[in-house]
């Protein structure tokens, strides 16, 4: 093996070690890196009450209620479990039922959270508006989000 390939091997090996070190750190601190918990993860993990936390899931169909001016109530559900959200403030454009949302707020119980911020989460699907309309006309619109 020539000197230059030894150097190449050394560089690649050190890169590999460094990469595995960083990935080990990241995966072992997963709890701190995740931006939000899903309602199911919330039940599985020990989360302290009365602390600020972020929860993300889909807004349950038919659960959205306007209580008063700028005061809303809805359920966030990941199909298995759900959590009730109380929120006072403005909602982002993309916020609607059966769409993803992430909320930040104070956990009152494992089934109720008082939100201070609501973010809308959109998915990776992009489709022209006209196609959606024609799909709906044919009753072919089956994607649920």
């Amino acid at each position: 093996m020539t000197l230059r390939f030894q150097r190449l091997l050394l560089i690649l090996l050190s890169l590999l070690f460094l990469l595995s070190a960083i990935l080990l750190i990241l995966f072992n601190s997963k709890k701190n890196i995740v931006f939000f918990y899903t309602p199911s993860e919330l039940l599985e993990n020990n989360v302290e009450l009365n602390k600020t936390i972020r929860i993300g899931a889909f807004v349950q169909k038919g659960s959205f209620k306007k209580i008063a001016d700028r005061t809303y109530e809805f359920n966030l559900s990941d199909k298995k479990n759900f959590i009730k959200v109380m929120y006072t403030g403005f909602l982002p454009d993309l916020f609607r039922e059966e769409q993803g949302a992430v909320i930040e707020g104070i956990l009152i119980s494992k089934k109720l959270i008082k939100a201070s911020t609501v973010y809308a989460k959109h998915d990776e699907n992009y489709m022209p508006n006209s196609i959606k309309k024609s799909l709906e006309l044919n009753e072919y619109w089956q994607r649920k989000y």
């Binding site: 939000f36 899903t38 989460k121 990776e124």
Partner: peptide
């Protein structure tokens, strides 16, 4: 790998 607000790759 993690729950993010950013959507996954299209």
């Amino acid at each position: 790998w993690w729950n993010t607000l950013h959507q996954p790759a299209s």
